[in-house]
Design a protein around this nucleic acid. Structure first.
Lengths: 118, 118
DNA sequence: TCGACGTGCAACCATAGAGTTGCGTCCGAT
DNA sequence: ATCGGACGCAACTCTATGGTTGCACGTCGA
């Protein structure tokens, strides 16, 4: 159980959303997904930022449960984790459905009121 | 066509994600969805921030296509817009699927290599 | 017409966070 | 034993942005 999975859904959504809000971080995730596994040093070579910047981003992503890192000898290999992303997608999707529902209801009420007054 | 819909999917995802990353903004969306329609002044009464802060947040949300405001007399009524939210949910969901696909492929490759060496 | 209410605009403050550099440490290979 | 590569930590800069206050403008109603 990761630190992310220990929290409730609201906390998770918050951390995932703010993690994904940064374009550099999304780029990092693309690279990581493409390579399957990579170290901070390697990833930094494919980005216009320093290794330290990448390290910080990876820490944020790991705290959000979007990646996980494992030490292998003197290096740390990171990989992508779909679970948190999927959970947030579901949250967002159900929210959209809820909005649709409410808007439809309001529209019905408005039409009913209109018929009422004639 | 809103300013949001005129841009590509990448731009849209970026603006929606950074808009949703702020907790006050999410709270604002909850209020709006619950009330169906509301003005900045009204919304500010239900939040621990000033009306001006709410106005700024609404501007960000509108730029992301998550809400739309319409002038009615001396007030501006805002309402929630599911489309952009739904599009971002789909983007996120397909990304999760893609990650799963890649991870599965890497796992297969690893197992194949393992059999290879015996 | 005039007062009250809701907006819009501008200046300003403060903090979070993205990025950098420098250095110490640890591990692996020669 | 030691050299080099990868990591971790800390201090620092700088910008974006969430928040505030003050004031001017337009609109509705008495």
């Amino acid at each position: 159980m990761t630190a992310e999975e220990r929290r409730g859904p609201a906390e998770g959504v918050d951390s995932v959303l703010s993690a994904l809000a940064d374009p550099t971080r999304r780029q990092l995730l693309d690279l990581l997904a493409a390579q399957g596994e990579a170290t901070a040093t390697t990833l930094a070579e494919g980005l216009p930022v320093s290794r330290q910047a990448v390290v910080k981003h990876l820490a944020v992503l790991e705290a959000a449960g979007l990646v996980s890192g494992a030490r292998v000898g003197r290096e740390v290999r990171y990989a992508v984790r779909p679970a948190a992303l999927d959970a947030t997608a579901r949250w967002m999707s159900s929210l959209a459905v809820e909005w649709d529902r409410r808007l439809a209801m309001i529209k019905r009420l408005a039409e009913a009121a209109e018929r009422e007054e004639g």
